[in-house]
């Protein structure tokens, strides 16, 4: 899943995997950090700073330069995600939004409210796209009723990358 070559301003790339591209997104953050400033907005507590630090260390001895270019913020509710995106300045740098929909899957948030807030978030993402590339990672909802949120995001994607969850192979029980 090599995203770097396709990253460019105005392009919204959506990665959809069963775990919101947990590994791939950390690799991408480290790679981008080596090249310049990155804004990471985490909606599902997916950001693994130690993992990113380890990935950086493999590539550079000057870890602090890269580490000081990775700017992150976390949102713990969909209201916070909306505020977070609304208060993110447009800068000429890539944006990574990790597990964007996680907080929107909360069944305590009414469906109409999740829809409204996501619409507002997508508007903010369009604003950010004017200044830099945006990568959004997504994971499937726990309940099918919230599938429409996925569709809402995917519809806006310029590039949609889907990685299916590995299927468990049946295990032959041992005879002895």
């Amino acid at each position: 899943m090599d995203i770097l070559p396709v990253l460019k301003t105005g392009k919204l790339i959506v990665l959809y995997t069963h775990d919101a591209a947990r590994t791939e997104s950390m690799t991408l953050i480290a790679e981008l950090g080596l090249r310049g400033a990155v804004t990471i907005l985490d909606g599902g507590n997916r950001y693994r700073p130690y993992q990113v630090a380890m990935l950086l260390r493999r590539k550079t001895v000057n870890i602090s330069t890269a580490a000081n270019r990775l700017f992150s913020r976390r949102a713990f509710t969909c209201y916070e995600m909306n505020t977070l995106l609304g208060s993110t300045p447009s800068l000429n740098q890539p944006y990574l939004i990790l597990d964007l929909l996680n907080t929107f899957y909360d069944d305590h948030v009414p469906t109409y409210e999740a829809y409204r807030l996501l619409k507002s978030c997508l508007n903010q993402i369009q604003r950010l796209l004017l200044s830099g590339p945006v990568v959004v990672t997504l994971a499937p909802p726990l309940a099918e009723e919230r599938d429409f949120l996925l569709e809402q995001v995917c519809r806006q994607a310029d590039e949609l990358i889907i990685k299916e969850a590995p299927v468990c192979q049946p295990v032959q029980p041992s005879l002895f």
Partner: peptide
């Protein structure tokens, strides 16, 4: 009714130190 305050921006090193 809804808390709006969000986390401030942190660099990777600041996050590792704080979290």
């Amino acid at each position: 009714v809804q808390k709006q305050q969000v986390e401030g921006t942190k660099t990777l090193i600041e996050l590792i130190r704080a979290d």
